[in-house]
């Protein structure tokens, strides 16, 4: 961590790491897909179980990504580390995209299973609120004219949201059991068979690696963007001084 603590070192190290990260992520996803399409169909869900292999990893990443934003926010507020803010800012749109995927694939899975596009199921609803929280974070980032001033306010909002995540999860579960209609098919279904577990695991690791590749690449972009901005401001200042 100390090695990486400096943006210049981070840029140098990540430049060497990037091609490998992309390659390993692509390879793991390919293996996961191969295993998924070879796995037997579920006796209850038929072939729609194929959607599970891209839905569950997306849902997992939607939560992991928010955790990364929250951890980065602690780094921003406590240590005022420049890379922590870069990490949180780079993670937010990627996390929102994975959350969006979890919602869309969940809906596409639900239609043949439940007969409707959307069920106010506890899990889907929690993920929907998580998605709204991502949008709130991004909205606050975009509201600041000076991006360097946005870092700590956004970190506060991210941490407030992180404290709320378990409370929201708990309340949505409670709300759902209170309004539970007869018996709906649960997304987690029956206990997962081993034949389905391996492809799911491979896809989960593949998605996670893909996330890290995207995250590191987006962090590099963000660092470069800030350098460009700083240099432009400096150049403009020099111009004004010369006149």
């Amino acid at each position: 961590m100390i090695e990486l603590a400096n943006p210049t070192r981070f840029m140098a190290l990540s430049e060497r790491l990037m091609p490998w990260l992309w390659a390993v992520a692509a390879l793991t996803c390919a293996i996961g897909l191969f295993l998924a399409f070879r796995a037997p169909a579920d006796y209850q869900q038929g072939q729609t179980v194929l959607i599970m292999y891209i839905h569950v990893p997306a849902a997992w990443l939607s939560m992991m990504c928010y955790s990364i934003i929250a951890i980065s926010s602690v780094g921003t507020l406590v240590w005022r580390h420049p890379l922590a803010d870069v990490s949180a800012k780079a993670a937010a749109p990627i996390g929102a995209a994975f959350t969006f995927l979890a919602l869309v694939t969940g809906s596409l899975w639900g239609k043949p299973m439940w007969g409707t596009w959307w069920v106010w199921d506890a899990r889907l609803t929690s993920v929907l609120i998580l998605f709204l929280m991502y949008l709130g974070l991004i909205a606050l980032w975009r509201a600041f004219d000076d991006p360097s001033r946005a870092a700590r306010p956004v970190a506060i909002l991210a941490l407030v949201g992180f404290v709320n995540v378990p409370i929201i999860k708990f309340s949505v579960d409670w709300w759902n059991t209170l309004h539970q209609p007869a018996s709906v098919f649960r997304l987690d279904g029956p206990t997962i068979d081993n034949a389905m577990l391996w492809p799911l695991l491979a896809m989960g690791i593949g998605y996670t690696l893909l996330f890290f590749a995207l995250h590191v690449a987006a962090m590099r972009n963000e660092i470069m963007r800030r350098r460009v901005r700083a240099m432009r401001v400096k150049a403009a200042g020099a111009l004004v001084a010369a006149e």
Partner: peptide, 19 residues
């Protein structure tokens, strides 16, 4: 014959497009 092929294709294409 694969059941609900449309939904599976849609889910995979949306995922591929977004990623």
């Amino acid at each position: 014959m694969i059941s609900h092929l449309g939904f599976i294709v849609a889910a995979y294409s949306v995922t591929a497009a977004v990623l």
